[in-house]
């Protein structure tokens, strides 16, 4: 068991087999620096719980393929990334810090997928971005590549 401590001073116990999916912690363990509690000053407890949930589910990635639990895992992943933008970015940052490649992959892909086919207006609204381009600048961008701004596949809804 390895103990992790979030930046709001909560401690979590995680199986070593799960936690070594994090390259960072794996290196720490290998270097013998993980004897007591590992402090994670960048990660709050809410995010850490999510990350640990992911790590525990993916503990036996190799085995899943053999026992036909791949679909199960896929379904879990789909459910897992079903969260708000802010939470998603928190997890991305944690995954980046802890260096958990698959989790990073999963969350970044989800973020990108949410942007695909969205109209410019929808992206602004989703991410609460204020448009600070002047009207002329915006028109210039549209004039340079009008094909990117028209078409039935462009989604103007905000989900």
């Amino acid at each position: 068991m390895v103990k992790l401590k979030s930046n709001d001073d909560k401690e979590f116990e995680v199986e070593e087999a799960a936690v070594i999916q994090s390259e960072m912690i794996k290196n720490m363990i290998e270097d013998g620096c993980a004897t007591s509690v590992i402090p994670l000053p960048n990660i709050d407890s809410k995010t850490l719980i999510k990350v640990i949930e992911y790590l525990n589910k993916h503990i036996n990635m190799g085995k899943a393929a053999e026992t036909g639990e791949e679909d199960d895992l896929k379904e879990f992943d789909e459910q897992f990334v079903n969260m708000g933008w802010e939470e998603l970015f928190d997890v991305i940052m944690a995954a980046n810090y802890l260096n958990i490649h698959e989790l990073m992959e999963l969350c970044c892909q989800s973020a990108a997928d949410r942007l695909k086919n969205k109209s410019v207006r929808a992206v602004r609204e989703m991410l609460k971005i204020t448009n600070d381009l002047t009207e002329e600048e915006e028109q210039e961008i549209i004039n340079d590549a009008p094909w990117a701004f028209e078409g039935p596949e462009i989604d103007d809804t905000v989900n």
Binding site: M104, C108, K116, L127
Partner: peptide, 30 residues
């Protein structure tokens, strides 16, 4: 987010139209 993380997300846009639209969101995005 850190630039390399943002890049990780943005380089997953694989339709040129998505990339062009991303470039029209705000000055920073452009």
């Amino acid at each position: 987010l850190k630039t390399d993380v943002s890049l990780d997300i943005m380089s997953r846009l694989n339709d040129p139209a998505d990339v062009v639209r991303a470039g029209a969101v705000s000055r920073l995005w452009r």
